[in-house]
């Protein structure tokens, strides 16, 4: 262990602001990237699902029109 107490650990030998700024920023952007990447596929699935539904509706409408004639 490089530190004797938890307070010293958080103090980082007087460089607390710079060290924790670096670790905090890195964690933040990586978490945002991970969440964004995780949701990407679901979002695209949703779009495809909507498109398939729309196509299905159009097909049904076309069928009805044909039968109506």
């Amino acid at each position: 262990m490089a530190f004797d107490s938890l307070r010293e650990f958080f103090n980082m030998g007087g460089y607390a602001f710079y060290v924790w700024l670096s670790y905090g920023f890195s964690a933040l952007v990586l978490i945002i990237l991970a969440i964004n990447s995780n949701g990407m596929e679901k979002q695209i699935f949703q779009q495809i699902k909507q498109r398939l539904k729309r196509e299905e509706k159009l097909k049904q409408a076309a069928l009805r029109r044909k039968e109506g004639k």
Partner: peptide, 25 residues
């Protein structure tokens, strides 16, 4: 790795604890 970098690796003889930024940078 980050546990080692933040709490167990030694401080630099010139840069002190600020050297821990190295493990991200």
């Amino acid at each position: 790795g980050l546990g080692l970098a933040l709490a167990f690796s030694p401080a630099d003889y010139q840069q002190g604890e600020s050297v821990r930024i190295f493990y991200l940078h």
